[in-house]
Computed example of a mutant assay.
Amino acid sequence: MALQLHIPAGPVPALLHGTIDGIVPVRYRDLGDRWELSIGADWRHEARHDVPPAERTAGAIRPAIYGAVATYRNAQRSRELRLAA
Rank of each mutant, 00 (worst) to 15 (best):
E80H: 06
P63C: 06
N74F: 15
A60V: 01
A9R: 13
G22D: 15
A2N: 06
V26K: 06
G40S: 02
P8N: 00
G10E: 00
A64L: 04
Y66N: 14
H6N: 09
G32W: 04
Q76M: 12
D33V: 01
L5R: 05
R77N: 13
N74Q: 15
A60I: 00
A2M: 03
L16G: 11
H6A: 07
L15D: 12
R48S: 13
R56F: 02
Q4T: 09
R73G: 08
Y66C: 13
A47H: 14
E80P: 02
A54S: 03
A75G: 12
T71V: 14
R48N: 13
P13T: 02
A54L: 00
Y72W: 11
P52Q: 03
W35Q: 05
M1P: 14
P53A: 05
L15T: 13
D21N: 15
R77A: 15
D42F: 04
S78G: 12
P13V: 01
P25V: 04
A47C: 14
P52Y: 05
R29Y: 04
P52M: 01
A75H: 09
R77G: 08
V24Q: 15
Y28C: 11
A64T: 01
G10V: 00
H6S: 10
T19R: 14
G32Q: 04
T19G: 10
H49T: 12
W35L: 07
S78Y: 07
P8D: 00
R82K: 08
R73W: 04
S78H: 13
L37V: 15
A14N: 05
V51C: 01
Y66F: 13
G22T: 13
R62P: 01
R73C: 06
T19W: 15
L31A: 10
W43R: 03
P63L: 10
P25R: 10
I65T: 08
Y28V: 11
G18P: 08
R29D: 07
A84Q: 04
R82S: 11
W43G: 02
L15E: 14
L31T: 07
G18C: 11
R44A: 09
A2I: 11
R34L: 12
V51L: 00
R27S: 09
V12Q: 02
R56I: 04
R48W: 13
G32D: 06
S38F: 00
R48E: 14
A84H: 08
G10P: 00
H45L: 07
E55S: 06
E36V: 02
H17M: 13
E36M: 10
L16T: 10
V12W: 00
P63S: 09
P63W: 06
R77P: 10
A58H: 05
R29A: 08
A58Y: 07
R44I: 12
P63K: 10
R48T: 11
P53G: 02
P52T: 03
